[in-house]
């Protein structure tokens, strides 16, 4: 019997681990509001090597969002 092809989209990812589009939008709005857009761009370009957050995979976008959440805390709290 032949093994079925491995399909990435069928991997189950718990909902709490999925980056939500609205979370990215909210974070970007906060970043812009606090004049941290350059920092957002710097991390995206130098670490993730993309120009737009939507070019990231779901998992990588989640990791990026964690960094941005820390960025906001580090500069604004």
């Amino acid at each position: 019997m032949q093994t079925p092809p491995f399909i990435i989209s069928e991997i189950h990812v718990p909902n709490q681990l999925k980056p939500r589009a609205d979370n990215v939008v909210k974070l970007k709005a906060e970043v812009d509001k606090h004049n941290l857009t350059d920092m957002w761009d710097m991390i995206l370009m130098l670490d993730y090597q993309v120009a737009n957050v939507h070019e990231l995979s779901s998992e990588t976008r989640e990791e990026f969002c964690c960094i941005i959440a820390l960025l906001l805390k580090a500069f604004t709290k």
Binding site: I43, D47, I67, L70, L71, K73, A74, F75, K77
Partner: peptide
Amino acid sequence: LCSDKLEGIGPPPIFY
């Protein structure tokens, strides 16, 4: 990487 926020007795908070 950390911010430039020096408050209290510690270094700035880390973000990366």
